[in-house]
């Protein structure tokens, strides 16, 4: 029995991973088409406006075979992306993949702790609101949640920066580390946390609002289910009843987080620009400023492929957690 179940599970995971292949293919095809239909010579898109020499242009034309038929070019494009070759940024002078890889950790440092902490707090608030649905307290939380996700992160970021960093001077205004007084070890960590605090809270406001709202709705729905009546009929305490409802209400949260991944990353990127955080957002901002098309295309492809993979990952996690899928 156990063996059969784990087989099912393996099949489920493999199936879900295979399902990402057509999607990833489409993503790569979309970015190829974009380069082709963009106004002007594709070479502009492929090298940006970073003043490469004629020799470099000739070398790129030869390497990418831009004189060859379009399907050959498409094939080359696929092959190079599969080799993680996203082109070369003449503006920043470096392979696009390396530029992205260098900045990605900083983005994750900003995004993940904030996502984790504020998702948990948001869910807690939502669950709290759901204990007395449509009460004054619940209505107030609902309205605050709507206000919370109505304010764009860059607006909130600018205001927080003005108030807490610029006027009150509680936090540094820009960057990730204090380069004037570099500290290592514990001091370095404290410095990083001071820089992280404000952007992370600003970013978290959105997760807080979105998840409070989601958890509230899911919890109210779960509390109305028959098995909750059943649990009450067994004389279980309100705490246990809530726990049972919570378990059911939180399962869809995994899926929702996966589906919102692009949104979460968008927020992070925008907050980075406000706070001069040296992650993908700053990189993107500079790429737009410098008309660095290879870098922009690379960012798009990486993010899009990342979204496809994260969606698959959350589906798999959901399958592992939910017995109805796990043992199906």
């Amino acid at each position: 029995m156990r063996g059969i179940r784990s087989n099912h599970l393996a099949v489920f995971i493999v199936k879900r991973l295979l399902a990402t292949i057509p999607l990833m293919t489409l993503v790569i095809a979309v970015s190829f088409v974009l380069i082709q239909i963009a106004p002007g010579d594709p070479i502009t898109v492929l090298i940006g406006e970073g003043n490469p020499s004629d020799a470099q242009i000739a070398e790129i034309r030869a390497r990418l075979g831009l004189d060859q038929p379009i399907y050959v070019q498409l094939w080359h494009y696929f092959a190079s992306i599969l080799h993680l070759d996203l082109g070369y940024s003449y503006v920043s002078s470096g392979p696009v993949i390396e530029l992205i890889a260098a900045r990605l950790p900083n983005t994750l440092i900003l995004m993940l702790p904030s996502l984790l902490i504020f998702t948990v707090v948001g869910v807690a608030i939502g669950v709290y609101a759901a204990t007395r649905p449509y009460s004054a307290r619940d209505n107030a939380i609902s309205v605050l949640a709507v206000l919370g996700y109505s304010v764009p992160v860059f607006v909130l970021g600018q205001m927080a920066l003005l108030f807490f960093a610029s006027w009150l001077g509680w936090f540094p205004t820009q960057g990730m580390r204090n380069f004037r007084a570099p500290a290592t070890g514990l001091g370095g960590l404290a410095d990083l946390l001071m820089h992280l605090a404000l952007p992370a809270v600003v970013l978290g406001t959105r997760y807080l609002a979105v998840n409070a709202r989601f958890a509230r709705t899911a919890m109210i729905e779960a509390l109305g289910q028959d098995y909750i009546t059943s649990a009450r009929a067994q004389g279980l305490g309100e705490g246990e009843v809530q726990r049972q409802a919570l378990r059911n209400a939180l399962l869809p949260l995994i899926t929702v987080l996966g589906m919102n991944f692009a949104d979460i990353l968008t927020g992070t990127v925008l907050v980075e620009i406000v706070f001069g955080w040296p992650g993908l957002g700053r990189l993107m901002y500079d790429a737009i400023f410098g008309r660095d098309y290879p870098l922009l295309m690379g960012l798009f492809v990486i993010v899009a492929l990342g979204v496809v993979l994260i969606n698959a990952a959350t589906d798999i996690i959901y399958g592992l957690v939910d017995p109805r899928i796990r043992n199906a």
Binding site: A38, D263, T266, Y293, M297, L299, V303, A304, V307
Partner: peptide, 19 residues
């Protein structure tokens, strides 16, 4: 498929490329 694509990043690329 459109909903899987990261909307903001795609919009960014499109506007950057097409002006």
């Amino acid at each position: 498929f459109f909903q899987v694509l990261p909307q903001f990043f795609l919009a960014m690329v499109l506007v950057a490329l097409f002006g």
